[in-house]
């Protein structure tokens, strides 16, 4: 055990215990001021979004010139977090980090005080690639076998996904439209429950995000059969995409940092730049690799806005198609 690191550690936690972390170095970017920045995350603590938010908090603080706190607000299906950011003073000190299901899908399907366009994406952190997987000893072991079996016996296969219309459910809907196959859709509380059911042999197929099943795939407990993305996932390089299998379905989920649109554009730009700078640092990259957070290709304002517009169009299409049925 390295005593030096231990000392730093003691100092760090002592700082926390006496007076909640003081990373503040107020030498640059005076316009943001010294008030702490809050990253609101509309999910529970401990998930993959949470880990990513904490990597930002730990690394971007010195570049943004003030402390960054991560606040978890899972209330009202995440809507309480969005409401908090929308209601906050538009000075760039309260920002949101979420995937599209909170800002786009729920805004379109629920009654909210804001429109999809009211969220201004400033950083494009990563793209999550929804992945279909089965138990290793299941008779289905590839995309082709799945489609063949589902065509032979419609509605015989049970497919576990998290909440209805979430980012691990919409791709399934798209695929069913594309191929005409039918599966039994089984909503679960999330990736953990889906995985329990797959491993226990209670259901046939499930969808999740790659980092959460890597270790199960490597140990040979489950087989990932296909990825709904344009390119294969970095962490599961042997798993084909649905495009490779001949089905033109791809639905990557961008993880974005947003401000509310009433925040002045100069502040949006400034925040975007300091977060980017923080994430490009070596520590941030090491943390990202350890956590499989995929922060090796972080994109700024323009890319974020472009991908947000594209995703909005796609979600609208899928929702319209579902409503027609």
């Amino acid at each position: 055990m390295h005593i030096k690191r231990a000392k730093i550690a003691t100092a760090v936690s002592a700082a926390f215990l006496t007076c909640a972390a003081g990373f503040a170095t107020a030498d640059n970017t005076p316009s943001l001021g010294n008030d702490p920045i809050r990253i609101v995350m509309p999910y529970g603590a401990g998930g993959s979004t949470d880990i990513t938010a904490r990597i930002i908090a730990a690394n971007a603080a010195e570049h943004c010139g003030t402390r960054i706190d991560v606040v978890s607000m899972p209330g009202a299906g995440g809507m309480e977090g969005l409401q908090f950011v929308a209601d906050a003073e538009p000075n760039g000190h309260t920002i949101l980090m979420a995937d599209y299901s909170a800002t786009i899908t729920q805004t379109l399907t629920e009654e909210t005080d804001w429109e999809v366009e009211d969220w201004a994406p400033i950083v494009h952190l990563t793209d999550w690639k929804p992945t279909v997987y089965v138990k290793a000893d299941h008779e289905i072991q590839s995309i082709e076998e799945w489609v063949a079996l589902a065509e032979a016996e419609p509605n015989s296969l049970v497919f576990g996904h998290a909440d209805p219309l979430s980012l691990v459910h919409l791709p399934l809907v798209l695929l069913e439209m594309e191929t005409g196959i039918q599966n039994v859709h089984l909503p679960t509380t999330g990736g953990g429950e889906t995985r329990t059911m797959i491993l226990g042999g209670h259901i046939d197929l499930g969808m999740t995000l790659p980092p959460s099943i890597v270790s199960n795939v490597n140990s040979g407990e489950v087989t990932a059969i296909g990825v709904f993305a344009d390119e294969r996932s970095d962490v599961l390089p042997d798993v084909p995409t649905f495009k490779e299998a001949g089905y033109d379905v791809s639905f990557e989920a961008p993880l974005l940092v947003y401000t509310y649109s009433s925040v002045p554009e100069s502040i949006q730009q400034e925040l975007s730049e300091c977060i980017m700078k923080g994430l490009e640092s070596d520590t941030a990259q090491t943390m990202s690799t350890q956590a499989s957070a995929g922060l090796n290709n972080v994109q700024g304002l323009e890319s974020a806005q472009a991908i947000y517009r594209d995703t909005t169009v796609r979600v609208k299409e899928v929702l319209a198609a579902i409503n027609e049925e």
Partner: peptide, 10 residues
Amino acid sequence: IKLIGMTLPT
């Protein structure tokens, strides 16, 4: 405020 850093509107 000090130990937990609770979030309140300003």
